[in-house]
Computed example of a mutant assay.
Amino acid sequence: MPLPTIIIPGYLESAIAYQQLAALLAKSGFPTITVPLRRRDWFPLIGGRTVAPIIQQLNHTVKQALQEHNATQVNLIGHSAGGWISRIYLGEKPYPATGKLQSLWNAHSSVATLITLGTPHISQERWTRWNLDFVNNNYPGAFYKNVRYVCVAGKTIYGERRRGSWLAYSSYQQTCGIGNTWGDGITPITSAHLAGAENLTIEGVKHSPRSPGIWYGSPEALKNWVEYLS
C-alpha cells in the first residue's frame, strides 16, 4: 500500500499553490497532504531566523497522516526551502528555536523517502546561510541510510548578465557563487543536488508553481520523479 505523502511548501509559499500537485499525486495512488502553511507564516522568519515554527507544522501534519492512514512511515516532498527544512526535521541534533529553547524531532525513522524539488542544499545567501550551515555541518549529504534521498534539479535557464537571464544569474551567484551556470531560474543545478543522493535533472522546468509554463509539479515533469515514491 502506498505511503502517505507530505508536501512542504517553499519559502514564502502557501499550501494553496500545491493543490494541483497534491491532486496529481493522489490520482497516481499516493494519498497526499500539504503542510497547511499560509504565506504570512513565513514573515516572522525573514532574515535567516529559526524555521522551527514551520517544522512544528510539518511535524503535526506527519503525525496526522500517520494516524489517519495507520502507517508507520511517510514520504516527504520538499519544494525549494522545504527540502532543507525537511533535512532538519529528520535530524537528531537539537535545533536552536527561540531564545535559549531548542527543538528536536529525530524523524528519520518515520520517513521512507525525501524528494527535494529545486532545493538549494548549499547557499552563500546571508539570510539562509546560518540554517544551511546547521544542516550541512550536522547532516552532510544523504545522511541517513534508512532514508531514500532524491534531489531534483531543473536545467532551464542559463544565467547571464543580459535581459531575460539577469535574475537567474544573480540568484545562481548568490547561491553557489557562480552566475554563469544552468538551473531552474532560481536554484542552480549544483546546489539542487546532494552528495550521496539519487540526483535527477529535468530540462525545461521552472522553479516555482507560480512560474509560467512547466514547473517540477507539472504533469510533464512529475512523471520523471513520481516513481521514487513507490
Rank of each mutant, 00 (worst) to 15 (best):
M1L: 09
T5I: 02
I7E: 01
P9M: 10
G10K: 04
Y11E: 09
Y11C: 05
L12T: 15
S14W: 00
A17S: 14
A22W: 04
A22T: 03
A23L: 09
A26Y: 02
F30W: 13
P31V: 05
T32F: 01
T32H: 02
I33Q: 09
L37H: 05
R38A: 12
R38W: 04
F43H: 10
I54Y: 03
I55W: 09
L58H: 02
T61V: 06
V62N: 05
V62Q: 07
L66M: 12
L66K: 08
V74K: 03
N75T: 07
G82C: 08
G82S: 06
G83I: 06
I85Y: 13
Y89I: 05
G91T: 12
E92D: 15
P96E: 07
G99P: 12
S103K: 12
A107G: 09
A107W: 01
S109E: 14
A112W: 01
T113K: 02
L114C: 02
T116P: 04
Q124G: 14
R126M: 10
R126C: 06
W130E: 09
N136M: 08
N137K: 14
Y139E: 10
P140F: 13
G141M: 08
F143V: 01
V147L: 10
R148F: 00
A153S: 15
K155W: 02
K155F: 09
K155I: 07
G159P: 07
R162T: 15
S165Q: 15
L167Y: 04
L167F: 10
Y169H: 14
Y169L: 01
S170W: 13
T175G: 05
G177C: 08
G177Q: 09
N180R: 12
T181E: 10
W182G: 08
I202L: 13
V205F: 06
K206W: 05
S208Y: 05
G217V: 02
E227M: 03
